[in-house]
Nucleic acid binder design. Sequence first.
DNA 1: GAGCACTGC
Length: 611
Amino acid sequence: MGKDGGDEEVIEENGNERKDQEKGLVGYSVRFDHRVPPGTKIKYVTEGMLLQELLRDPHLRQYSAIIVDEIHERSVDVDLLSGFLKQIVTGDKVGRGGIPLKVVVMSATAQVEHIKKFFSSDDSLKNGTSGEEVEYLQIEGRQFPVEVIHEPKPVADIQEALIKTVFKIHTQEPLSDKHGKKDILCFLTGQEEIEAAQRLIEEFAETLDPKVPKVKVFPLFGQLSMEAQHEAFQPIKHPFTRKIVLATNIAETSVTVPGVRYVVDCGKAKVKQYRPRLGMESLLAKPISKSSAIQRTGRAGREGPGKCFRLYTADTFATLQKTDLPEILRTDVLGAVLTMKARGIDDVLSFPLMDRPEIEAVENALVHLHVLGALGDDGRITDMGRKMVMFPVTAPYARVLLAAADQKYDCLLEAIDIIACITAGDDIFMQVRSEEDKESVDVYRKELQRREGDLITYLNTMQRFVSTPSSDRATFCKQRRINVRNMRQALNIRKQLRSLSVKTKMLLQDDAPPPPPDSEVTTYQPVSPETAERILKAFLKGFAMKTAILAPDSSYVTAHGKHVVAIHPSSSMHGVKREAIMFLEHVYTQKNYAKKVSAIQAGWIAEALAV
DNA sequence: GAGCACTGC
């Protein structure tokens, strides 16, 4: 569990505090890992875990105090949790037998007033005594000073400005000082921009006077292999050389590059945003917030005094939003609405939230949940909805699992394998960088691919993987450039979904005995086309809205919304023309892309929408 | 012919 993971510390009641503390009675509960010995006084949990506990214990009677750390990160879960905590704190204490709940929230930046106001009772707001019952304590952070340098005029070409700034730093600033190395960290928006900048910097470096120190460039973004990412963290071995790291936002939030004393900030980041009106997401470069710019600046001052060069003007900085949009305003609120409904919130529009999504977004989610069968005509959660919230997957996937468990489709284990692969993080199939590798990897991957499309390909991959003896699994992954970490995660999720299926009586214990390690090594038998059809029909129960029909002009037109959609190049269906497709993801980047694509028959769509 | 970053009951 990362110390900056935004986890809550939950303090449990009863027992002798002092003595128990000395016994070290601290427990934790995170996904796949729980250690809560009897008599535990302090429990570390994830937000998702506590939300799950709220299903059973709506007043959190088990707890006397809750500490929410890193609340400024503003995940959907922390926002929902804050709403429930506010209701408990400001409501009557009847549900808790009159015992109040203490809530401590901890935040690193901005938003203090916003958060303070939110946790104040509505009565105190009316009386104009806002924040009266919310106590506030500030602790100064410690950092070396960082000088901020803005561009005097807006720059026309970001790459050009980057090169100019990088080499100005490189030729005018020392390689190291008493605090250590003085390397450069540049924040860019994505892989393409980073690779272009790397080429330009390396080209320009060739022209440098031999008396000037050398430079070595390290790209750093999430899709890079662990080894390649690791390289960017190592101190440079060659003498007389400066390290230049070109990174995405990964270096702002997830990792800390040591040795950095100069930051170059392009002022933008790619942001995923859900468009409720279009029922799709976009992934586009947008101006960052002030707090994000300040966070980037701080990366220059961790080891000694530093400098931050912003490739935008001071005026532009002044126009930036104070903070980033919280996740709840950037994602489909389908899950959030179902979470509320399952915890007894009938009127989701009046549920207290630090930031409220547009009414239209909530209404779309309600309609979608109704289509999925999670909500009845009266807007209340159905038995099916209650079953759906038991599963740690989004509502459409949960709906697929329920359909797959139905006799009509009878493919629960297969659906679990596919969903485990898809929800295990980034795509289990890593991108292949060199052309050479691509050829051999493609040969192996082709064997896994099926003409039904990506979903059955994932199933094939999982089935092949588990029927491979464990001593050969590393090779299996390496040959196909399968991300081993994600594959391991997929196995964990598979196990969890199977056991939840047993718990919810969707699966008989006998059908899927919890397998001891390596016991699943069996002969591999690919699914029949008939089974594949049943699987795809089960997925349509969750994704009938995400379908497209091949138009006479050979483009795919979405059934819902009538937009032209292209099959993403990462899909095994890329370039393939079939009667109709179902896709699990719909993202606008360069254009409207369908991802995780399967071939279906047009007639199946109406069939899936019928009850 | 293309991929910001995390996390989860």
